[in-house]
């Protein structure tokens, strides 16, 4: 039976074959060039994180000392006393809420686009991807007044706006997955007498699970990394790590605290990525 693999699934096997048969293997000069490029790229990606790593443990680092003069954990204490824990919880809650809303809605929208083309489809796609073309601050200027007037609680307003900004990503990822998804399986299961619930659990879910994880992660990141929407619409009711970073960066002598908060912002998504990597799934795509 011919099975179309969703484009998101790994083709490790194919790649290994290609490497083994030597057709695309490079020569020595090429290998050196490649290693040098790889090293340069690794430095490029990791360099801005180096000062963060140093500042975290720098209790005292006066200019122009190239390295901290006193090492310690004072910055961690200061960051905690500035509400790092609250901010972390706020960020986590926001990311999860956006993910919990945007993922299922994205699945539904993608299913509609993939399997039920109608004369509305073009308009639907245009609308669903419109947030990518509209900078967040523009909508926020307009919505701020509207949301307060409609008495939408400000945290709910933040989740609503960020969900709209996460939907293009979740819809896109799921649309790709459904594009390679064979409805025949579902129909066959139905013919064999499976209930709707069984079809969903045993057929649909396993087929889309990797894409689902990817979509959920992207939606989480939209909530996790936002600053402007949280500040303008949330109006302080929701304190997240990016807000703490901004307010610490607006003060003097807070470099160490900024570094600790930054690492806090890096930890959970990194853990998720590592977890995804360990369980052998392909790396999720991402947001700029």
């Amino acid at each position: 039976m011919a099975v179309t693999l969703p484009p998101g699934l790994p083709r490790e096997a194919l790649r290994k074959d290609a490497a083994r048969n030597g057709l695309t293997r490079s020569r020595a000069a090429g290998r050196i060039l490649r290693t040098a490029t790889a090293a340069a790229l690794a430095v490029w990606f990791v360099l801005p994180l180096v000062p963060l790593g140093l500042w975290v443990f720098a209790d005292r680092w006066s200019y122009p000392a190239p390295l901290p003069q006193h090492w310690g954990l004072e910055n961690v204490d200061s960051a905690l006393s500035r509400g790092a824990a609250t901010g972390f919880a706020g960020s986590l809650a926001l990311g999860l809420a956006v993910s919990a809303l945007a993922t299922p809605l994205g699945v539904l929208a993608a299913r509609s686009l993939a399997f039920h083309p109608s004369r509305w489809s073009a308009l639907f796609s245009a609308l669903l991807f419109a947030p990518l073309a509209l900078p967040a601050f523009v909508t926020v200027f307009g919505l701020n007044v509207l949301l307060v007037r409609l008495q939408v609680p400000s945290s709910a307003g933040v989740v609503l706006v960020l969900t709209a900004y996460a939907l293009p990503y979740t819809t896109y990822v799921m649309r790709l997955a459904f594009g390679a998804h064979d409805l025949g399986f579902e129909e066959e299961a139905c013919t064999l007498g499976a209930t709707r619930g069984q079809v969903f659990l045993r057929v649909q879910l396993p087929l889309i699970a990797p894409a689902l994880a990817r979509a959920a992660f992207l939606a989480f990141l939209v909530g996790w990394s936002d600053y402007l929407v949280t500040v303008l619409i949330g109006g302080g009711s929701l304190v997240t790590v990016p807000l703490l970073v901004a307010s610490a960066a607006a003060g003097t002598g807070n470099d160490g605290i900024v570094a600790v908060l930054s690492l806090i912002a890096l930890a959970p998504p990194l853990a998720l990525l590592l977890f995804a990597g360990m369980t052998g799934r392909r790396r999720p795509g991402a947001r700029p």
Binding site: S81, G236, S247, A248, A250, G251, G253, N254
Partner: peptide
């Protein structure tokens, strides 16, 4: 809810 400039560590610590 007291809204205040948050860039001053000592001010934050005093309030907290």
């Amino acid at each position: 809810k007291l809204w205040m400039y948050g860039g001053d560590t000592q001010g934050n610590a005093y309030v907290d």
